[in-house]
Amino acid sequence: MEQNITLAGNIPVAANEDKMRSARRKRIILKIVQYAVLSLITVFLIFPFVVMIIRSFMRDGYSLAEFSAASTLKNWKDLFSDGAYMTPLLKTVIIVVVNVVIMPFASSLCAYSFARTKWKGKELTFALMLATMMIPASIVQLPLYVLFSKLGWLNSVLPLTVPNLFGGGAINIFLFRQYIRSLPKELEEAAKIDGASAFTRYARVTLPLCKPILIFVAVNAFTANWSDFMSPLIYMTSEDSYTLAVAIYQNTVGVRASAINVRMAAGVFMSVPPAIIFLLFQKNLIDGLTVGAVKG
């Protein structure tokens, strides 16, 4: 564009216009190609979920083309009237709410220690904590199953909540620590001079400044616990203790295996809360994801 304007004095007007026109045409074609690429990818990535939604409004045993003949609301009515999904929903909500409350606080408390206090063994403890991310879940699930069964915690929400009181996850502590270290120290030092105790400094000075990362950890706690499948599958085996994810899984085998499209409705239903949460907090989520991922 700029080049064309500066050249305008030297080149005959017609040739100049020609150039501008072809440049503009090129740009328009480029944009059309770009939109086509973006839309194709979107169609590809979104089509399974459109299928899931359509199927949730259809009777079983029909192909998608027969939608008008097979459309029904029965799957959704079944989903909401059937205890097979609604009791698990309640269980899931309890687990999610508890973890959304405790995980940000547990992890920020421990992160404060790693970011702002000095004690012997701090670096070693931090390294040992990070190393736990390498330990496969399947190595600890078995002994924990034995432990929880001895404590009589199986089939209750305790195995899925109590462990989170103890630090709330290594990756969350790591993210909190990075964030707290990036905050200016001066505020804390001022509070210290005013005689505030360490806990007051954590709760009154640092925590209010951690809002973005608090939201990130809370939102992650929501989606992780809402979607968690393996842990409840192992620790909650009696039918009246299923979470939503386990209920959907267990209903793929056994008596309810035939009700495929009720399962599709359950799938749509289960996808909606994380999607809403993601849309509401996308900025926090993407910033938080990249703190860990890019800085390594």
């Binding site: 547990a106 408390l109 421990c110 404060y112 220690s113 790693f114 206090t117 000095k118 004690w119 012997k120 063994g121 701090k122 403890t125 040992l128 904590m129 736990t132 330990i135 190595i139 600890v140 078995l142 002994p143 924990l144 432990l147 462990p163 009181l165 103890f166 630090g167 290594a170 502590i173 360490a198 954590y202």
Partner: peptide
């Protein structure tokens, strides 16, 4: 006192990794 304060803040995660990660891993 300083050591204790910092240690107490980290105590939950110290217990956490011992009870829910390292001890079970050794058990298996």
């Amino acid at each position: 006192k300083g050591w204790l304060t910092g240690f107490l803040f980290a105590l939950p995660v110290i217990l956490g990794i011992l009870i829910f990660s390292y001890y079970p891993a050794i058990q298996t």
